[in-house]
Design a protein around this nucleic acid. Structure first.
Lengths: 211, 211
DNA sequence: TAGTATACCGCAAATTGATGTAATATTGTA
DNA sequence: TACAATATTACATCAATTTGCGGTATACTA
């Protein structure tokens, strides 16, 4: 790490004035940090972003006007290199994954302690991805496979290829087996999952994390 | 949080004796922790697991015999409730995602400081998912969508449905549009991505994180 | 011995990909 | 605010391919 010559500049978008001011105070009084803007909506922030160019933005999800998730891509377009940390009470699957897919680099819940917020800002600038414990678990769970899949290894492999849109002929070629064998595998997969089409097989398998 | 009446039991699987003993020492000397086993391979550990039943296992990836990733599902089968933390030098995409999909609850790199390891063990038992900064960024990056997709919102939606194996008719029904419109969207998607089949469209779109 | 992986046959129905045209809606920018 | 570029919607035709269902059967493996 190099010594920080210029302060880390932070902007805050949060509609609750109490919370907004409390974050401002916290960050402004931390060594090496500077608050360059605190806004109660995206619309208000957007007017000033191009002048202030913060390093990091703390972004709430619930906002008047367009919400934090929808604001994410717009902010990224204005300031492509800015690191955005979501700071919210929402900890449900959908909000978390929407935020991450729209370009958030971290996700903290509002019970996060002051010093952890400061740590998170540093971490995100060092290439990390700070997350609250519950969010991290959500994210990791999304990768976990069901260990009790009824599908055999080969069947799983075939179904994964089906879910990539490949035809039976193509799957056969890529796995170096006969197309008839692929047909048999698919037949058996359908039976095991109790479905009668590609789409339903993929749906069931994804819902149960078989693929 | 409740007061911890019984110590947290930890097992270690790590082939390097220096590292293994250093972790043992660290954990054994932390308040509220007990090391109930330290092994240099999965095979050795498996013989004792059913007797010792640890709460948490620290697992290395590079091991003699079967490696840590392959050991994961076997451990989970023996001890379904154990929390497994990967502790390794590997920080590449494949190893991380394999570990997570096979059931690891956390992933730390070996430069993790002593007190962070202790923190991580506590965190994983509280339902968190401790990750090193670089790993967290890898994981989060895997969710990020490309903000410069050539596909329109509707086209993206259609292609996502195609990648779920749905037929054009079904997509049309679910999006409340005519099947002919779906055909047009697909035609335009193929043109934009310069492909000529479902499979190639999905491949290109996934590689570029358009879907 | 049950399950897995492989392969073959036949058939009707459905899907796909290519190539056109074109009206209306929305959006970004000048 | 008006204009141009996209986006979204819809229709028509066609041959080739794919899909799902019904069987059967052999060799390997845990």
């Amino acid at each position: 790490m190099q010594i920080q010559h210029t302060p880390i500049t932070v902007a805050i978008i949060e509609d609750d004035s109490m919370i907004r001011e409390s974050y401002s105070y916290l960050i402004a009084n931390s060594d090496g940090f500077e608050v360059v803007g605190a806004y109660k909506s995206y619309e208000e922030a957007a007017k000033n972003f191009l002048n202030i160019r913060p390093d990091v933005i703390l972004l709430d999800v619930e906002l008047p006007g367009i919400n934090g998730i929808e604001a994410l891509p717009k902010i990224k377009k204005l300031l492509p290199t800015v690191q955005i940390l979501i700071l919210t009470v929402y900890e449900n699957n959908e909000t978390v994954f929407d935020a991450l897919s729209q370009g958030a680099s971290g996700y903290l819940t509002k019970n996060t302690s002051s010093n952890k917020i400061i740590e998170a800002i540093k971490e995100v600038l060092e290439g990390g991805a700070p997350m609250s414990a519950g969010v991290a678990r959500l994210v990791i769970n999304s990768f976990q496979r069901n260990q009790n899949s009824p599908l055999s290894k080969r069947e799983t492999e075939v179904l994964e290829n089906v879910s990539l849109g490949k035809s039976r002929r193509r799957i056969a070629d890529e796995l170096f087996i006969d197309m008839e064998t692929v047909k048999t595998h698919i037949k058996n997969i359908y039976q095991k999952l109790d479905v009668h089409s590609k789409a339903d097989a993929i749906k069931t398998a994804k819902e149960n994390k078989f693929i």
